[in-house]
Design a protein around this nucleic acid. Structure first.
Length: 266
DNA sequence: AATGGGACCTGCGCGC
DNA sequence: TGCGCGCAGGTCCCAT
């Protein structure tokens, strides 16, 4: 489940390996993941373009091309980018100068590839909230003020802040000792400060360890990320809280599995 | 504004 | 051993 740290990890590896390379060919094994434009036009318009710049906006990866177009990649749940790839399980593979392939894998076909003129015009991008790293504590506090929503779904709302998903929301709330169901506006100043710091720390640590490979996420090199061993609550239902030994609880909030310690998180 | 549901999808683990 | 089922969660969309 790629969130900000996973996508950032891939972005940094792409910069080291494929930046400046030319896309010399495209192999499409399942056109379902190509949302824009049609298949033929996608192939025609991406061929012979050079990868000029690589960006990340929230969980969205953007490859700016020499043609003036950009390739936007959203991994959603099970998307992977692998380089060099082998084309075996890929939905779409890009042949790059040097004759190695960049594979887009996606077992569940929920991921998205788009080739477009100006990625800034994408609705998803326009609606994105600020990156956590770009915020000050004061700004964060103001954003929570008056919000009735439960804090965990709010953290995961990409129009509120961008990049936090189910896993890192749970980890940040645990570290901040805040119950995931608390209305956002009920948080005290100190709560907000702890939460803000926890979000930043968790994301930074996860980037440092190259992401969490619980499910399908892998780094560009096809190796798993190492952050799972530093998880404290996610997917630990019934296991003792690492602080107080109370069994970790699992509930559903906003339709998502939610893990927390009923003793530590108030 | 907030909330809840369904849709998109496939692979996995579970119970029987 | 095999089968059906629920579930995993990122995003969009619709209803209330």
């Amino acid at each position: 489940m790629p969130e900000l740290p996973e996508v950032e990890t891939i972005k940094r590896e792409l910069e080291k390996t494929v930046l400046g390379k030319k896309i010399t060919g495209v192999k499409i094994n399942n056109s379902k993941v190509i949302k824009q434009p049609g298949t033929a036009s996608f192939v025609k318009n991406i061929k012979n373009a050079r990868i000029n710049n690589i960006l990340r906006k929230g969980k969205l990866l953007i490859l700016e091309l020499s043609s003036g177009k950009s390739l936007a990649v959203h991994l959603r749940m099970t998307g992977q980018l692998v380089y060099p790839g082998d084309c075996k399980r890929s939905r779409v593979s890009f042949k790059l100068s040097g004759n190695k392939w960049l594979d887009f894998n996606d077992s569940r076909l929920l991921g998205e590839l788009r080739l477009l003129g100006d990625w800034r015009q994408l609705k998803f991008v326009k609606n994105l909230g600020p990156e956590p790293f770009d915020l000050t504590l004061d700004e964060f506090k103001h954003m929570l003020a008056g919000r009735k929503t439960k804090i965990k779904p709010l953290l995961m709302d990409q129009t509120f802040i961008s990049g936090v998903g189910n896993l890192y929301a749970a980890e940040a709330l645990f570290r901040a000792k805040i119950h995931p169901g608390r209305p956002a506006r009920s948080l005290s100043g100190k709560d907000k400060a702890r939460l803000f710091r926890a979000v930043i720390v968790v994301l930074r640590e996860a980037i440092k360890y190259k992401g969490s490979s619980l499910d399908q996420y892998v780094q560009l090199s096809n190796k798993p990320g190492d952050y799972v061993k530093y998880h404290k609550v996610y997917a630990r239902a019934g296991k003792p809280c690492l602080i107080c030994k109370t069994p970790v609880k699992r509930t559903t909030l906003g339709g998502r599995g939610t893990y927390f310690c009923p003793q530590c998180q108030k």
